[in-house]
């Protein structure tokens, strides 16, 4: 079989393609079709996140033990600095402050590391993007899922600390589940937004740590916004408390810690948590999909 001229060759390429039902390669699918493709890749998304998680510590002698040891050490460092040296526990008893701090650190780290891996989701995996076909949103979603699994390991430490300071399991602990689901949706949405931005401007990965640190200090990870800003105008306190990182941290603390009552929560806290999750997830998804066919260029 050679490339001898055939009658079809007198046809223009577009007509020839139409005649045999050929489609343009690499065109962006519709939003519905995209969701369907993504769903059919769910096993890949899950397997990829688990593989990343396992590969992370596979060279270490202690292996997967680091999944728990790393967050524990993190909490110890924060406690030494903010609990003992800076004494940021204003307005809280020691027994409340330590679980308050540990919960805050882990919940914020969940958002933080989802964002950090999200910004490199495309730009750090160009080899994969240029070699295989799959809905690109698989990558940021998979990385967020990896962070969720990491957080579940950290929750072991959180439970130990919380119980160690005299807060025993009660019914309100069940609130962790909806709080985590909502935070995961929020994180994933945000990861998709920064993934698209990071794909176009890889420099963002350099800026991200600074933005995240600012966000961390503004969200009351190691201090209570209510107490720290007592006496300031009410709207400042409300604005800081309505920021999504603070909302998800406060919900988790409220669920776990006896001494952290509803008075510490901003009004309509569940509505805020739900609103942030839905708006950011849907917005992020559509924003990411809009550039689907351009990932991997250049």
């Amino acid at each position: 079989m050679t490339a001898a001229p055939s009658p079809d060759e007198s046809l223009p390429a577009a007509d020839l393609a139409a005649k045999y039902g050929l489609a343009v390669s690499g065109a962006r699918p519709s939003l519905v079709e995209y969701v369907r493709q993504l769903w059919s890749r769910r096993h890949f998304i899950l397997a990829f996140s688990q593989a990343k998680l396992t590969a992370q510590y596979s060279q270490a002698k202690l292996g997967q033990l680091w999944q728990v040891a790393t967050p524990l050490l993190n909490a110890a460092v924060y406690y030494a600095i903010f609990g003992l040296i800076l004494d940021a526990s204003r307005g809280m008893s020691h027994d409340t402050y330590v679980p308050f701090l540990v919960t805050g650190v882990f919940v914020f780290t969940f958002t933080q590391s989802s964002l950090m891996s999200g910004v490199r989701a495309i730009s750090g995996n160009l080899g994969l993007v240029r070699a295989l076909h799959f809905p690109r949103a698989s990558l940021p979603i998979s990385f967020s899922l990896q962070q969720l699994q990491q957080l579940l390991f950290s929750m072991i430490v959180v439970f130990l600390v919380v119980i160690g300071f005299g807060n025993y399991p009660r019914l309100s602990w069940l609130l962790i589940l909806p709080a985590l689901v909502l935070q995961f949706l929020f994180n994933t949405g945000l990861a998709m937004i920064v993934a698209r931005m990071g794909a176009k401007t890889p420099d963002l990965a350099q800026l991200m740590p600074f933005m995240l640190r600012t966000w961390m200090y503004a969200s009351g990870v190691m201090f209570s916004i209510n107490h720290m800003l007592a006496g300031r105008p009410d709207w400042i306190v409300r604005a800081l408390q309505a920021n999504p990182a603070a909302v998800y941290m406060d919900l988790m603390r409220y669920a776990l810690i006896d001494g952290y009552g509803a008075s510490n929560l901003p009004p309509h806290v569940w509505a805020l948590a739900l609103g942030w999750a839905v708006v950011v997830f849907c917005g992020g998804f559509v924003y990411f999909w809009k550039a689907e066919e351009r990932y991997g260029r250049g």
Partner: peptide, 27 residues
């Protein structure tokens, strides 16, 4: 470009089904 992994600057590629690049190593 045939696999649809690199966008074309000009011109077009039409394909029947999904062409795949034997490039699984990246994953």
């Amino acid at each position: 470009a045939i696999a649809g992994l690199l966008p074309a600057e000009k011109g077009k590629v039409y394909t029947d089904g999904q062409p795949s690049l034997l490039g699984v190593n990246a994953a």
